[in-house]
């Protein structure tokens, strides 16, 4: 597992080190069992707790190779133009339940701060992968996930509309140029171009397939449609349903 040696402040969130493997957001485990909403965003739910737009912090964490941490929302003021803030107010939750960036970015300040943070690493992390190629379609999008050699990390080749973006994300994180490009690209709904949307989608796919879906050492090719979190989370669920998901071991 790889965690940080002290608290790291991003914009709108703080990341805390933890002693056991796995990522959490406001204390809620980032896994399929706790993923309630997956369409235009990812919400994690545990009992009465809910966190909103989790993909925009989980993506940057995987881009930096962090596999163990708790993300804490720090927003204290309402912006009711955001549907998530209206949801929180209506359900009597605090605005800190929303951990997504208001500009629809995968928290560039968090990614930058993690880049200069001290990393604590040991080998006691178990993770999963797929044993054979998997294809899944939903909502006009298609995704293919195939296994790579142990220790390779993630290869991504993503298409959104007329835009595309390809990169690799090794187990200890992506290169600085990739991290900078992805975390400064706006979510498709607000993006000025398909190219920027495809670049942004790297963070979302890492969040959904790799972190929440627990599928690492994989190549992911996807032609993404609208509200593509249903596609990416659906593929991770399909991997389990069809028996392609396997524990790979520790790193």
């Amino acid at each position: 597992m790889r965690t940080i040696d002290a608290d790291v402040d991003g914009e709108f969130v703080r990341v805390e080190p933890v002693e056991s493997d796995g990522l959490r957001v406001n204390g809620i485990p980032a896994d399929l069992a706790h993923t309630r909403k997956a369409d235009v965003r990812i919400d994690l739910v545990e009992g009465c707790k809910r966190c909103f737009v989790a993909e925009h912090v989980l993506g940057p964490l995987r881009l930096r190779g962090i596999t163990a941490a708790n993300v804490v929302g720090t927003v204290e003021t309402w912006d009711f133009a955001r549907p998530e803030h209206r949801f929180c107010y209506g359900a009597d939750l605090a605005p800190s339940a929303v951990v997504g960036h208001p500009e629809g970015l995968p928290n560039p300040a968090l990614a930058a701060a993690l880049g200069s943070a001290g990393i604590v690493s040991n080998g006691d992390r178990s993770f999963g992968t797929v044993s054979e190629p998997l294809e899944y379609s939903h909502g006009g999008g298609t995704i293919r996930i195939e296994p790579l050699d142990p220790g390779t990390g993630v290869e991504l080749d993503l298409v959104y509309g007329d835009g595309s973006f390809a990169c690799t994300v090794p187990p200890d994180g992506a290169d600085e140029a990739t991290i900078d490009a992805v975390t400064h690209s706006t979510t498709p709904y607000l993006a000025p171009s398909d190219e920027e949307a495809a670049t942004h989608a790297v963070a979302d796919v890492l969040s959904d397939v790799v972190v929440i879906g627990d599928l690492d050492d994989v190549r992911i090719e996807a032609d993404l449609g609208d509200a593509y979190h249903a596609l990416t989370i659906g593929a991770a669920r399909r991997a389990r349903a069809c028996g392609a998901y396997v524990e790979r071991g520790e790193r």
Binding site: D79, A81, P83, R86, L190
Partner: peptide, 18 residues
């Protein structure tokens, strides 16, 4: 709004909260 295209928001995605 600083971040959202509220002038085109016919469905009230953003303006419902403004």
């Amino acid at each position: 709004h600083d971040h959202y295209p509220v002038e085109l928001d016919d469905d009230g995605i953003f303006t419902t909260g403004m």
